[in-house]
Nucleic acid binder design. Sequence first.
DNA 1: CTGGCTGTTGCAAGGAGGTCGCAGCTCCGC
DNA 2: GCGGAGCTGCGACCTCCTTGCAACAGCCAG
Lengths: 145, 145
Amino acid sequence: MESTARVDQVLALVRSSGGRATSARRAILQTLFEDSHEHPTAEQITSAVQRDQPDVAESTVYRFLDELEKLGVVNSVRLGHGPAVYHLAEHTQHHHLVCSRCGRMVEVSDEIFDSLRRSLRRDYDFEIEPRHFTLAGHCTSCTDP
Amino acid sequence: MESTARVDQVLALVRSSGGRATSARRAILQTLFEDSHEHPTAEQITSAVQRDQPDVAESTVYRFLDELEKLGVVNSVRLGHGPAVYHLAEHTQHHHLVCSRCGRMVEVSDEIFDSLRRSLRRDYDFEIEPRHFTLAGHCTSCTDP
DNA sequence: CTGGCTGTTGCAAGGAGGTCGCAGCTCCGC
DNA sequence: GCGGAGCTGCGACCTCCTTGCAACAGCCAG
């Protein structure tokens, strides 16, 4: 699917919930879909958007990202001490392992969690966030302090 | 074990790493051990400490918590949009499920992760943080938006 | 294709949460 | 005790967001 089509798809969703399709929003979505493998911060998204539309303010980006998160289009994660990172919910049939020693980030597929998911549902009446989550830990072989 | 003894134990660790056992640090540890089932924020810890020692500054608490985290005595977690919460690492042979809808927090025992842990070690050369982590998701039956 | 209601925007100020520099103080090995 | 390394309170500062507001722009009815 082409990213323009996806942008329009999300904008349609936005409009169906009473929002409007503005050029700033289109540019933000375009950025998210183009860099969809990344985990950009709001600031990085803003910079990317401003290469095309220099007058888009950071607050606009934050406001729209909040709305997209409520709509389930993006997820945000706050790792460690830095700012939150955002990514498309649909892109994340994977999860993250972040090494607390060397900072390496590994993506693991979703299937590995299937049995855990079943246990939690059965024993704790709980659904793991289906789209994304992060586990802390460290590489088995990591020698950093 | 009595909490005073544990406080002394941690202070001994602090000293063995070149730090000093001051009265502010003793009070901070006492608070952590007394409220060990809670997940207090730095601000809550400061307030508790200040009931005994009003002159302890918040920055002192932050600095010591950082050091305790480096020593592996406490862990910090940033959930959602609020401030980080802290808790003793030794107390957390459990993990947290936080419902993104109603905010309910469930503690689950560590054993349920055993098989996941084995898979990640085998396939990804990764050790899950043995002390604590948090999973996002929602209650199966939760009806909040 | 225009008028106007309503949602959105840029801007700048504000705020929460945390960090830092420093002068004075305290711990503790000697 | 004494001296120097480490710690502290204080306040300024920083980052990452959030908010209030007046101007502006979608978009639907007519």
